[in-house]
Design a protein around this nucleic acid. Structure first.
Lengths: 216, 216, 216, 216
DNA sequence: GATGAATGAGTATTCATTCAT
DNA sequence: AATGAATGAATACTCATTCAT
């Protein structure tokens, strides 16, 4: 799992605070929002809850964000950027193709364990902000697919379709993470599950003697 | 993908209609609810919308269901049962292990294409009714894992952990379906994507000469 | 001022209550709304105030009306219909053309004195619901203009343009009513003001010896 | 329509800017406010909109005006002063009584066409600032009534009550302007409407042989 | 069984105004 | 003078649910 690092977060777009005080308040709101969205879900995440948690007045919210959806999108973007960053860094540390793969998944699971919010928030995004959701998946999968394409080039893996493989393995990781981290509320994935998954992943990608060009 | 068929839907539980008229009304409400949940999402699915679409008065809803969550759970249960049924039937038609696998996935994609509702509804269930969501996944994955275990017994596949493999491949199918059916709003998965996925799946499960018992 | 009677109020359109209880509640809301709009003006007329005055719960409002503007339009329509009715009846009682004129204005002033709401509400309508406002003026003026046209036909008045005259005299009545009834919060227009106005009106319309067909 | 010119705008009252920069800012705010009030109406005219249109920061507003009502009053005062000025000048140009009448109305319609804001703003004033509204009407009508009184003195017009006639004819002009300039969004009143109105006005005021009583 | 009127707590959002800089 | 962040009360409107008929 070699993941190319994400582009820097989009320069601006939303209201940019012009004073340090404003910047602090805005950050507090974002943090609070991440927590609230993850805890009670988008529909039950009221602006009141968010501002209360952030310790600011209700009206202040609208000084910094245009509305509920806007802050949601920003939270999703943030989280998305952070997982991809974490996965990219981790996979980059792997010396061999296999190590890169293992490190990438490990980073993903670790992030999942530390930010259960990610999952919960992303899953809601389907209805709330499909664009944000697609951007999230696309961002991660694209990086992964690129890594697979290079590995195939080098003959490190079988001639699988890199994009399809990336989506498939991303899905594998996602459900495994959901099942053994979120549902179990575990701090990390159990080692033997991790190894069993890696076994499946290796099988899916392992180079074979009878290797040929895949269709695309 | 050999999937054992689901148990018959739980005998009763909720209000059971005592007249044919009642049964018809109840069915109309369920159908309307599936549609509304799939279209606008749980939080925006108001009882009014459901009853309007069903063509009954607002109060009638509460004659048949205890509340919004209850009808949601029933819709989820329904859909869940129907996918599993479809997958089980299809995989049962496969002569060889590989054919069973292929047919199972095919049935899953077909169902996804015909009932995009399934996805959308399930993904929301995380917050609305975690139990229903877990029941859904568990139901499918358990059937699949059982099939994999038997295949391993027969030496048809590698010594992968059947449960982990089942979750992983379920995840693979899920994201592929999301990407190429839902996002494209396609009627079916493109053939080459399907084949590329099967290629990955086969690789993940294919028996090898150097095959040994996996840990669990 | 001969005013033809208004058409019957539009059959239905808005939510029609299906039970006597519903009808009663709806009527109470309309009455309350008329009062509130007249007292504090449209922008400050909150739904809460209206429902409190009507003695029903907030939500009940939306059972009967789609929103604030909708109830406003209905109130305007009501009032408009009632003035026109009153003016038409009164002018119909006049034996001569002059008497009709006098009675029409008298009815207008009487209505103004009894329903100061009319003025205040209509004047706001400009911004809130221009259609309603135009409908109101048009309805009254059209009736008046028709009466003038007939009077001209009979040679009872000068060859003035009936439409222009109707608007002009309507305006005269409006400002006079505003000045001497509303601003003075009087129960009726002072007799000498009324006579002075009638003098002006008679002058404007009086047939002359040198009378001919007017251009248009 | 002979209208005496308005007194110079009341010396000061509100915050007076002490620097040229301040004066400029204040003027920009007033201009913006006139536009905003005319466009969206008083209740929807937010201070933010006004300051944005004026290109200054929100807080700056309160440097120059005590609040929303205060700037509204000033805008009304301004407009009022300007119409009266225009009407007075125009009527002064008329050589004969009739010409003065015609010119006064013409000026009024021209102002209406050029500043539709006037109407819209005045009509709202009823609720927002009754004093301002009364001041506006009183100012114009008083000037007009004075002119009529003098004309009567000279025997140029019939013995109508000048005050009542002034209010009545003002009302006539107002509704005619509303109907044929504002509603039609026209640049000027159609010539034949103007003539038809003048015909009515002449009739109302024309001296007759049998001239007697105006009560007062 | 079915109806539809009634409820009232809850929602996102706006806005005039204050104030520290 | 000018700024822009912060406030919090107020607003229109929604909706799951209850209940008398």
């Amino acid at each position: 799992m070699t993941i190319t690092p994400p582009p820097a977060p989009e320069a601006a777009g939303p209201r940019v605070p012009r004073t340090p005080r404003g910047a602090r308040t805005r950050a507090r709101l974002l943090e609070a929002a991440e927590h609230v969205f993850a805890t009670v879900g988008y529909p039950d995440a009221s602006i009141v809850k968010i501002t209360e948690e952030a310790g600011v007045a209700l009206g202040t919210f609208y000084v910094h964000f245009a509305g509920k959806k806007e802050i949601f999108d920003e939270v999703v973007g943030d989280l998305s950027h952070r997982v991809r960053q974490a996965m990219s860094e981790a996979s980059g540390r792997g010396r061999t193709r296999i190590e890169a793969e293992r490190e990438g998944f490990r980073a993903f699971f670790r992030f999942t364990a530390e930010h259960p919010a990610l999952y919960r928030i992303i899953r809601q995004a389907e209805f709330v902000s499909p664009e944000a959701m697609r951007a999230h998946y696309a961002s991660i999968v694209d990086g992964y697919a690129e890594g697979l394409a290079q590995a195939r080039e080098r003959g490190d893996i079988r001639a699988v379709d890199p994009t399809v493989a990336a989506w498939a393995l991303m899905g594998a990781g996602e459900l495994i993470g959901m099942r053994w981290i979120l549902w179990e509320q575990a701090d990390d994935i159990p080692e033997h599950i991790y190894e069993a998954l890696m076994d499946v992943v290796q099988g899916a990608l392992a180079p074979t003697t009878t290797d040929e060009r895949p269709a695309r």
